[in-house]
Design a binder for these strands. Structure first.
Length: 579
RNA sequence: GCUGAUGUGGCUUAGCAGGUAAAGCACUGCCUUGGUAAGGCAGAGAUCACGGGUUCGAGUCCCGUCAUCAGCUCCA
């Protein structure tokens, strides 16, 4: 079902009214301020202004104080409908407002809102009645950033003042506390602390995987291979560089050559692959196909490189080289819907294993796209039908599809609530045409297959980044880099500790021992801060009775356990991928 | 790429009227052999991101470069 976002209208109205209060404060403090727009957003509101003076965070207090002054005056918000000409006259010194007025549909009334006699702003409303209605609200200016006028990098960059706003001061405090808490799970911070990955200035956006991160990554890959084998996929690997001719044929050269890394070999230009699909297509073309081969599902863990602008990089969530858990499915037209459903189902299953909640988005035909209207309509309908038949909720992004076809994206949320595209299913009528792919049908004639591009994790790198944040670094046992640590109480118990480690190791568990000359509290502290799921603690007592004591997440101490029982328990927990 | 901020030993940070670097953790050694989140002592470790400039003197001021962070733009 197509979703429309639900809104708390009262809160939104108040936030927008507070944006006017902010505007009034800014104009009174900085008379040269040119106001543009100031909408309510997820956690408050912002106002974009054009002002030569760069506002600094030190000035936030002053602005907030001014806002409080304005609110405490208790002035009313008063609407006044004006003619287009009057409006243009009122805002004749503000080219932004003039542009907005001129862009209003001719049949729409133009209105301004007064806040007191000395301030008005172009606005369709609605607003709260009076500033008195805002007195209980908690708000806090939290950042000042650049933002392009009307969201286009061709336009002037304005200053955007961001402000949190909630119905009560308590709700505001809670929100701020939540963000503070969220910072602790940041993939960059935990990646460093838990020694999962690093990014070096020698390669901005090109992540290095450290031994711990490599274990998580390989576990994800093992799981991926297992479920894809079950779902009837074959796995291939295609070259990291291919010549320019290929990228011209695929259309990527035209659309993305500025974002591709190239090199010259024997006088021919080669590009490092930014996508795996042309490689997959060449594999398909390597031999003739019968309708009996279809659907043909070919997976590839493909390392791709894309030039992302420097300001767009961030931890593992936005990088310049990443591994897509890609697959291309070649099929007949009447297999399309089932294949899409199969993939959606696979994504849903996988995300549940990690305890992720997600939302889906359907993106339709963009402006600079290839292909006929009929193909696009057909492809978009197929995706929509699959979503509807699976009763999955989704939002629609008009014009947001890939240049070769519409897509369904699956988005996950990071620690501070930003959403990231991970899984995606893209229908493609273009590549099969451009590469003249064929199969022989039941009728003995040649037909053109339809192609799906799809990823489940999206990029392993981004997915790992989100996993780190989702679990706050405390991975479930099957993913944990170190699953068990054996701690000896005194040096007398070191041999016993080592023998236990050996037995766990021989059972295939990832186990380490800590036999250093340190107090047990110290060793425990260190193991817990590294988020090791299970600790085994052995002293004279355990050694005498040939038992172990354990400590894990959610419980402090269980003693007198038999090692083999514990091993069974661990194996079961790993097998079921318990979270 | 754009706007703004930041950049001090492995990590987290202090030092900001400019006078040649401070602490905790981690590390090494010694003492301690201790039952569930930090035992004690000692030691080693930094050309203060890089390159210029101002100054008798720069981690501290100015300019440039690089990187990081937030947001914008972009994301096949």
């Amino acid at each position: 079902m197509e979703l429309k976002k639900e809104k708390d209208l009262e809160l939104e109205k108040a936030r927008h009214s507070l944006a006017h209060v902010l505007a009034k404060a800014l104009v009174s403090l900085y008379p040269d301020t040119k106001l543009t727009i100031g909408p309510a957003i997820e956690d408050g509101f912002y106002y974009d202004i054009d002002l030569d003076h760069s506002i600094t965070p030190e000035e936030f207090d002053k602005i907030e104080k001014k806002m409080k002054e304005i609110i405490n005056k208790g002035e009313n918000f008063v609407k006044k409908v004006v003619s287009r000409e009057e409006a243009l006259e009122l805002f004749k010194n503000n080219p932004y407002k003039e542009e907005l007025i001129n862009d209003l549909p001719l049949d729409e009334e133009v209105s301004i809102y007064y806040t007191g006699d000395d301030f008005f702003d172009l606005c369709r409303g609605p607003h709260v009645e009076s500033c008195r209605n805002l007195q209980n609200y908690g708000f806090k200016i939290h950042s000042i950033n650049g933002a392009y006028w009307r969201g286009s990098e061709k336009n002037k960059m304005l200053q955007r003042v961001y402000c949190y706003a909630y119905k009560t001061k308590k709700e505001l405090a809670d929100h701020i506390a939540m963000l503070e808490e969220a910072k602790k799970r940041d993939n960059r911070k935990l990646g460093k602390e838990l020694k999962l990955f690093m990014i070096s200035p020698e390669g901005p956006g090109f992540p290095f995987y450290l031994p711990n991160g490599m274990i998580v990554r390989n576990q994800l890959i093992d799981y991926w291979r297992e479920i894809h084998r079950e779902a009837g996929y074959k796995e291939i690997m295609t070259p990291i560089m291919l010549n320019r001719h290929l990228w011209e044929t695929s259309g990527h050269w035209d659309h993305y050559k500025d974002n591709m890394y190239t090199s010259i070999i024997d006088d021919d230009t080669y590009a490092i692959k930014p996508m795996n699909c042309p490689g997959g297509v060449l594999v398909y073309k390597n031999e003739p196909h019968s309708y009996r081969d279809l659907p043909l599902r070919m997976g590839e863990l493909g390392l791709v490189h894309r030039y992302e602008k420097s300001g767009e990089l961030g931890g593992l969530l936005r990088v310049r080289s990443f591994t897509q858990d890609d697959a291309h499915i070649f099929m007949t037209p009447n297999q399309v819907k089932d294949e899409i459903k199969g993939v959606v189902d696979l994504i849903d299953r996988v995300y549940k294993v990690f305890g992720f909640t997600y939302h889906a988005e359907l993106s339709t035909r963009p402006e600079n796209s290839m292909g006929s209207d009929e193909d696009w309509e057909l492809a978009t309908d197929a995706l929509r039908q699959a979503l509807d038949e699976l009763k999955l909720d989704y939002i629609v992004n008009e014009g947001d599809g890939a240049f070769y076809g519409p897509k369904i994206d699956f988005h996950l949320v990071d620690a501070i609530g930003r959403t990231w595209q991970c899984g995606t299913i893209q229908l493609d009528f273009q590549l099969p045409q451009r590469f003249e792919l064929e199969y022989v049908g039941e009728d003995g004639e040649k037909h053109r297959p339809i192609m799906i591009h799809r990823v489940i994790y999206g990029s392993l790198d981004r997915f790992i980044g989100l996993l780190i944040e989702n679990f706050a670094g405390a991975f479930p046992l099957w993913l944990a880099p170190e699953q068990v640590r054996v701690l000896s109480l005194t040096e007398r118990n070191n041999d016993y500790a080592e023998s236990i480690k050996k037995q766990l190791f021989n059972e295939g568990l990832r186990v380490e021992s800590d036999t250093r000359n340190e107090k047990i509290g110290y060793k425990i502290r260190e193991a817990l801060s590294m988020k090791v799921p299970y600790l085994i603690i052995v002293g004279d007592e355990e050694e005498k009775n040939n038992t172990i004591s354990i400590r894990g997440r959610g419980f402090e101490n269980k003693s007198g356990l038999i090692l083999s029982d514990f091993i069974d328990r661990l194996k079961n927990e790993i097998k079921t991928k318990k979270i």
